[in-house]
Amino acid sequence: MPSGLIALLDDVATIAKLAASSLDDVAGAAGKASTKAAGVVIDDTAVTPRYVVGLSPERELPIIGKIAVGSLKNKLLILLPAALLLTAFAPFLIVPLLMIGGSYLAFEATEKIAEILLHDHHHEEQLVDAMADPADLEALQVKGAIRTDFILSAEIMAIALASLDHLTLATTAFALVAVALAITAGVYGVVALIVKLDDIGLHLAERSSPVSRKIGDALVHFVPKMLSALSGIGTAAMLWVGGGILLHGLEELHILDFIPHALHDWSAHAGEAVGLMGPVVEWLLYALGSAVAGLIVGGIIVLIVRRFVKHPEELIVD
């Protein structure tokens, strides 16, 4: 009973089918994949911009470019071969591996919340030390962004792969390449636009048109606040995505699957009760339930890690 993130990832699987149905139509199907990946765009646009906050403005686009290249390498050089090998020799391992990735995302988000609540600033001091050398800070941020992207990319590629098991290995690989290229372009194109909104605002503020100046001034004042808020939104998104992966895994493995079924039924009934806004309410409640599941699993992992690791935040590089 997919909902929220899982429904959107199922859409990605549909795009993969379209890409594989005719090699002549791969380019068109890949273009559709970018628009269908709206959920992944939301997650990455919430998470990725924080990796350029505090860095030189002229380095923003090059950093986004590095992250995008790293994302493509994740998909094409690691995840694609691994997914094909798993499908051929150990398909039963795909869902458990995805759940491990979802657990890591939940841990990463919950650890950040724990740092705030416990006033643990070790990780902040690490960033401050790195800021003495901009190149080191940039490398640190890019590394963290690519690692987070790896988990999201793994989920996308696995869902797409699941719909292509009836095709030849070569056709499946070609279709997955098309999906990877389309989604990466869509995600990081939007991210690049977000991080350059302040520059767009400055340009508009210098124009002669009063309307352009007002829009530009509004952007200049709004963008810094938005980028700061995205840090919190990114943490929430990681809980949502991580929890969604875990709930989907429970359904697939038929382990405690009454939990995702109950959450789906509860959100569906609540949606039906509010009328026209029902689909929105259903989606929000399922997303909230997924985040709660991520928080519970992440909290358990944080307790275990903090018990045995002196500085658990060293496991997370932003």
Rank of each mutant, 00 (worst) to 15 (best):
A273G: 04
A262E: 07
G232S: 12
I245S: 03
V241I: 09
I259K: 07
E206W: 12
A268D: 09
G278K: 04
A270I: 07
I215M: 09
G278T: 00
H261W: 09
S212C: 07
V220K: 12
A218H: 13
S208C: 11
H221Y: 10
V280L: 14
D199Q: 14
G271V: 00
M238H: 07
S231T: 10
T235L: 11
G234T: 02
G278R: 02
V241W: 05
G216I: 04
A205N: 03
D217A: 13
W266Q: 10
L256F: 07
P224L: 09
H269Q: 08
H203I: 05
M277T: 10
A268C: 03
A273L: 01
I245R: 01
I259W: 01
A262P: 04
V241F: 07
G275E: 05
H248P: 04
L253S: 02
G216Q: 04
M226C: 09
S209P: 01
L253A: 10
I215S: 04
G271E: 11
K225P: 03
A270G: 07
P279T: 02
E251R: 11
V220W: 05
L227A: 08
I233W: 11
I255M: 13
M238G: 11
L204W: 00
S231E: 09
E272R: 06
S209Y: 08
A229G: 15
T235P: 07
G234Y: 00
A229R: 15
G232D: 07
I259A: 03
V223G: 00
G271M: 12
S209C: 06
D257V: 06
L250M: 13
K214E: 14
P260Y: 00
L250P: 01
L253K: 10
M226F: 14
H203M: 09
I200C: 08
A218E: 07
E206N: 15
L247R: 00
W266A: 13
H221N: 15
L204M: 10
V223W: 06
G232T: 11
W240I: 13
A218K: 15
A273N: 08
S212V: 06
R207F: 03
P224C: 08
I245A: 06
L256R: 06
G244K: 08
L239W: 02
R207W: 01
S212T: 06
E206T: 15
V220C: 11
D217W: 09
G271A: 12
G275M: 13
L246P: 06
L250C: 04
G234E: 04
P224R: 09
D198G: 02
L253Q: 08
I259N: 00
G275R: 11
H254I: 05
K214H: 14
I259H: 03
P279G: 05
F222E: 15
I200T: 13
V274M: 05
D198P: 03
L247P: 00
G244T: 05
G234M: 09
L227M: 12
W266C: 05
M238W: 05
H261I: 14
E251Q: 12
E206Q: 15
E272M: 06
L247T: 02
E272V: 01
L247W: 04
H264F: 12
W266M: 14
I245T: 07
